[in-house]
Design a binder for these strands. Structure first.
Length: 590
RNA sequence: GGAUCCGUGGUGUAGUGGUUAACAUGCCUGCCUGUCACGCAGGAGAUCGUCGGUUCAAUCCCGAUCGGAUCCGCCA
């Protein structure tokens, strides 16, 4: 027997009992006579004591222990003397007087200590990921992840959803992200793709009469990474028949409220806040706004056009926008140089050509552009922006998209550095009615904003051919604290509507048949109206665990260049493997 | 595809165009019977990411390259 108790769970109640523990040496404190060791297992840490008067043999062995040696020990749980109590650890009231110890395995000195708040770079942590995961904060995050998926499963099971697995080796589809491809040995020159999501399969499951489907599904997208984007990630994927948006959203709210309660012990008020896509862009410059603070964007295009500032007038004439944000009371926190350099640097990557600013003072405004506004205009600006002396107004004048992107980013930046964000808050938000399509300059055609199976808003249908860009989708995103957790929609279940959609996306009938024929065929057999959504598990874990990188929520993640520094994947394969797959690597750069 | 930042003992950092590259921690050895950031004494440990250039001389300056991080594009 290796153990009959867990280190972190021992309390005074066990005093006097003989226990056997198994774990790792966290720390050895050798006082010459008596040796103290902090023993760690998954449950926590307990101090074990080796005293030659209790067991000379055990003491001799303890003398040779080092960090991360794996051992099993037996001894008596003992209450500590009052002056020896350690209030910093949960088991600090007791210790275990060891009579017997077995060394299970030695350890090399670890490259970094197994504790929170190590200084080790992420590089090193990832190389020794198995050691990194021993650290309590990593272990806790994995435990939280488990708890979240467990709660989701329990909830969905309770609602009658069936967990159905869908293929990992599947068909490449042209829409959306770049596919990860897997060459076929049996079919020379042909490829499987790893799923970007189980989208088609879950809709087919609706045609199959499953009615309610869910899956904790791995998804793959071969695109460049970010702190919140990994090449493979996990979604809780859901789809249901006889679907109605409102009812479904209510259920998702129930589900998330349950997760927050079970995992964080927090009651989230319902219903969740809702914004349309148009409102989100207008107020926050983002389709995934962080609503934990205000400082919304204010449209000043009309006032700006009346000013004598040429760029403002021109922007208005060209159909652009002049918008501003009011950084309340921040005028004194930014010098002219800081605004012109530091804050401008936030907006330029988004294409903004400049960042105009005004500092509000008693009876007026100060700043390089103040002279372009007469007294009446100044008063209108102050009124519109709710400005008070000490406020800093920041303006971007440009095309709609540039204004939204740049001011949206600036708003977030200021929210962070001015400490406006309540780090403890969890602001769930629905963003609805996304555009159905967006025009791709690259492909010279409209592409689906969500995916090609999203149902348009019915009252917009008459514009679908004449003004496709203005058609809204019956779609909805779930946003939490400025991160998109996932999106869902009412699907198209009418084959004719689906064909119309493909046509709009520039698919010939032949190509639509070739790519999605099976789906169109399936829909010919009495498909129920259906819809669903998928939520990113990794991002949920990241936000609930208070982490800033998705890597911290995944046991074995990839770096920004999509490689794994521990296994060194991806790696070259043998010529024999390539030839079996009928592959020839065009150029090996080495 | 583009931009910015980083790369120095195991780990984290400091530093300099020139002789022994510093500090903390970790590690090793010895001493120590109530520590829990144990203490004390001693010791080992670095091709300064790699390649090339400038220079009498490069860890330092320049270029390339590799690796990591963040962002834009891309991606829901």
């Amino acid at each position: 027997m290796y153990r009959n108790a867990n280190c972190g769970e021992l309390t005074e109640v066990s005093a006097g009992q003989k226990v056997t523990l198994a774990g790792w040496v966290q720390k050895r404190r050798d006082l010459g006579g008596v040796i103290f060791i902090d023993l760690r297992d998954r449950s926590g840490i307990v101090q074990i004591v080796f005293n030659p008067q209790v067991s000379q043999e055990a003491w001799n062995k303890a003398d040779k222990l080092r960090s991360e040696y794996c051992v099993t020990v037996t001894g008596e749980v003992t209450k500590r003397e009052p002056e020896a109590i350690n209030e910093k650890i949960k088991t600090g009231m007791i210790e275990v007087m060891i009579s017997d110890i077995t060394l299970l395995n030695k350890s090399k000195t670890p490259p970094f200590p197994i504790e929170d708040e190590i200084g080790a770079s992420e590089d090193v942590r990832l190389k020794y990921r198995y050691l990194d995961l021993r650290r309590p904060e990593m272990l806790e995050t994995l435990k939280m992840r488990h708890k979240i998926t467990h709660t989701l499963r329990e909830f969905l099971d309770g609602k009658g959803f069936l967990d159905v697995e869908t293929p990992i080796l599947t068909k490449s589809t042209p829409e959306g992200a770049r596919d990860y491809l897997v060459p076929s040995r049996v079919h020379p020159g042909e490829f499987y793709a790893l799923p970007q999501s189980p989208q088609l399969f879950k809709q087919l499951l609706m045609a199959s009469g499953i009615e309610k489907y869910y899956q904790i599904a791995r998804c793959f997208r071969d695109e460049d990474l970010r702190a919140d984007r990994q090449p493979e990630f996990t979604q809780v994927d859901m789809e249901m028949s006889f679907f109605e948006v409102e009812t479904f959203q209510n259920m998702i709210e129930d589900m998330l409220v349950r997760v927050m309660k079970d995992v964080k012990g927090i009651e989230i008020p319902r219903p969740f806040k809702r914004l349309t896509y148009a409102e989100a862009i207008d107020l926050y410059g983002s389709d995934k706004p962080d609503t934990r603070f205000g400082m919304t964007l204010i449209n000043l295009t009309d006032i700006a056009a009346d000013s004598t500032l040429k760029v403002f007038k021109e922007v208005q004439e060209k159909g652009g926008l002049v918008k501003a944000i009011n950084a309340k009371g921040a005028a004194s926190q930014f010098s002219r140089k800081q605004v012109d350099e530091d804050l401008k640097a936030i907006v330029t990557p988004y294409g903004a050509k400049g960042l105009a600013w005004l500092k509000v003072e008693e009876g007026g405004m100060k700043g390089p552009i103040a002279k372009f506004f007469d007294e009446a205009l100044t008063a209108r600006i102050i009124e519109r922006t709710n400005a008070e002396p000490g406020d800093l107004l920041l303006f971007v004048a440009d095309k709609k998209k540039i204004v939204a992107d740049s001011l949206g980013a600036l708003r977030l930046h200021l929210g962070k550095i001015l400490g406006l964000i309540d780090e403890k808050a969890f602001n769930f938000l629905w963003v609805t009615h996304f555009p159905l399509l967006s025009y791709s300059e690259e492909e010279h055609r409209y592409v689906a904003e969500h995916h090609p199976f999203t149902m348009p808003v019915v009252e917009d249908l008459d514009r679908i051919e004449s003004d496709p860009g203005s058609v809204r989708a019956q779609s909805f995103d779930m946003v939490l604290n400025g991160f998109e957790l996932g999106s869902g929609s009412q699907r198209i279940s009418d084959p004719e509507m689906q064909e119309r959609m493909f046509k709009l996306l520039g698919f010939t009938e032949e190509r639509a048949k070739k790519q999605f024929g099976f789906l169109l065929d399936a829909f010919e057999y009495g498909v129920p109206p259906h819809g669903g959504m998928a939520l990113g598990i990794d991002r949920i874990v990241m936000l609930l665990a208070g982490r800033t990188s998705l890597r911290d929520t995944i046991a074995f993640p990839k770096t920004a260049s999509a490689s794994d520094v521990m296994t060194k994947a991806p790696s070259e394969v043998s010529l024999a493997q390539l030839s079996e797959l009928h592959l020839d690597v065009a150029t090996i750069l080495k």
